[in-house]
Design a binder for these strands. Structure first.
Lengths: 225, 225, 225, 225
DNA sequence: AATGAATGAGAGTTCATTCAT
DNA sequence: GATGAATGAACTCTCATTCAT
């Protein structure tokens, strides 16, 4: 039994490694060509295998695309959760999340651009493009963020004239649209400017009061004058 | 001569009517199926004509799509310009523009959804999807809006810590992303809620000072606590 | 009756004029574009009428093409017959025919090129491309030429080791191939050289003896040295 | 290594066999229907494969056609060169070439008919229809033939009143036109008659002096000096 | 008679998917 | 398990022909 289970584990790992290679190849090609212009032959060539091999691991092109989305969604939510865990103050958690997301964004612009513009089904919002595990991961993270926002509202750190649910939507919508814009530009703002920009608007939209303690605040009084 | 010119006008109108019918048919089908799944045959059937007829009016599928984009872009900018002209105060102009845009949006959700997600070239931002007349109309309107924002800044009605150019980008980005989100939802907010929502965030992001009547102002004694 | 018949004659002439215009337009376009790339719309535009009008005069594109072939075939055979009638000696008749044909060729290269390379049915030899009146005109002329050759043979002016029928075929084949070649060249030989060249080979192939009497002979003794 | 190279050879051969099958199928259908009426579907059916398969081997219909032309051009020039190499006397070489060409012609009438009448580009002369390898093979062979003719002229076996270049053109033009004519006839002359006929005229045109056995000379001495 | 917008069958070509090896 | 040649349905676009005006 020990023998069997360790062998299975090895095979599992092997399979996972294969999946990762194929998904990365797909991402590379789709980033370069766009979803519809990315052909299975090209993806296979990029991955160093035959076209038929792709179908041993994925039922269809669409499923290969979903695997790519799932992989990123899980990676993102994992990373953001970790980032939020480094802070106690809910507003700082939200900011840390934003920092971390921008970090991910800058390392994976390929993905953002494609997911915002070339989704095979053709949906514009985040949620509609997610399936199964990706959707689950996304919704769980959103719940987590909602709780954080509610906590912040209770502590009087955020505007309360809108329900927390709507604020979460605002954060995601604004963030998504901003990243979509940047992902499509040939030269988006540099990371430092990105944070100032995005967090500035989130701050404003969420009605975040003066962060007296913040070291990244860019002026006394508040952001807008 | 009178005779000739009136006859030409009739023909022109007839042709324009045809174009409108075909573009509307294209919009209907593309909305239902997405750009890549919308076939010329289906569009023709929807329009009540043969597939070949489409090619009497448009050189290619892409051009048919661009005609649809141009038509809407010009209609939108015309309508927004009119709406802005009804007010004198720059902030009120911006608000009137938002109201008018939401009005257009609710009457043409098809277009927004498609243009945000299915553009044949696959670009995420507004500008990259526009060609020729559409691009010209869009840029001219943006210039107009930029002037309005600069005027508002001079009058101390908006934040001045960011250049007007960036504020315009913010307004367009936030608006686009919000509309993109709503256009993809099966049941987006009702018009009344839409305005409160979108204008609320624009107001916050632009750092608009107390409007006399506003209950959502973020200054002291303000909406969020 | 006088009244009626004169009116009919006028109408007939009108119709013939129309046919001529349309055939000429077809020739122009087909020469420029080739048969398959010449579209009925273009031909109509060239003729200054609508596409539908072509079908009032010709049942199909193929028939329009045949009309063009017929027109030229009749014009050529008429002209050649006249040219031959100016001489009494059979060899001189054959030479006069060649001169006249080259004259026609140089005034209508369009037609030769097309008829040799773009015939809709795709036949290489002269006869296969002719229908009805054109075929009749061609065969009649050939019969006339055959008689001339036979006469020349009887007078001992031509080789007699091959039957006259084969010599006619040789003359037509060599002439056709030569004109086909020249019609396809951007710069074929000048008329003077053409005659020397083509007649030179016909002379040789037909086994024409020294033309002591010929006034067009270009050297004493004979053509080749 | 032995293993590898033999396997590659096998694959190469397999591919070449496929190409040959497809080209032959194309030839069959094009011969039957003509180039423009020969559809890729029919060619595929003739070859016993799917339409898409053709595109694994040829980029387009035009390229498939060119492959057919190249294949024949190379086969012809190879065969003719071999035939010429069997003789030492230049005139006999030219005659052997003609014999060999007629042999090829009778085994591949399909090709001649099509190439003379249905070339996609629509040119009448040989050269204009050749691309790349085919053109190269043709030009090289022509150079070879030119040398042969020059040699014959030096030995006083051919007329010298025309430059060798023009004589080559005459040979090719006359041969091409003759084969074009025969290829289009339902019952062309039998091989024996073909040679007598074609060589007879070439002989005359080239001013070939009495061959000892020749019965086709038409006069004592001869026509040209 | 003349028009020319409309037709629609059918062309060449593509590419996700399959399956014999 | 891996292959990649083969598939064939489905695409966009063309153009000779028709027919209501």
């Amino acid at each position: 039994m020990n023998d069997r289970s360790s062998r299975r584990t090895f095979k599992q790992r092997q399979k996972e490694a294969c999946l990762a290679v194929l998904v990365e190849a797909a991402e590379t090609v789709i980033y370069r060509e766009g979803y519809h212009q990315a052909h299975m032959q090209q993806i296979a060539r990029e991955a160093g295998c035959a076209a038929g091999t792709l179908y041993l691991y994925f039922k269809s092109k669409e499923e290969l695309y979903q695997a790519m989305v799932t992989r990123h969604t899980e990676a993102i939510t994992d990373q953001l959760r970790v980032a939020m865990a480094t802070k106690r103050d809910p507003v700082e958690q939200l900011k840390a999340k934003t920092v971390s997301l921008l970090d991910y964004f800058n390392r994976h612009r390929a993905y953002f651009r494609v997911s915002f513009t070339e989704a095979p089904g053709g949906r514009a919002d985040i949620k509609s493009n997610l399936r199964d595990r990706a959707l689950k991961a996304y919704l769980e993270f959103k719940k987590h963020e909602l709780a954080t926002i509610k906590r912040a509202q209770k502590q009087g750190l955020l505007r309360t004239d809108l329900p927390a649910e709507e604020l979460v939507e605002f954060v995601h919508g604004t963030t998504a649209s901003t990243l979509a814009r940047w992902s499509a530009q040939t030269s988006p703002p540099r990371p430092a400017a990105q944070l100032r920009y995005l967090w500035g608007f989130l701050q404003a939209g969420l009605g975040i009061r003066n962060e007296k303690e913040s070291g990244t605040r860019n002026g006394k009084g508040n952001g807008h004058r």
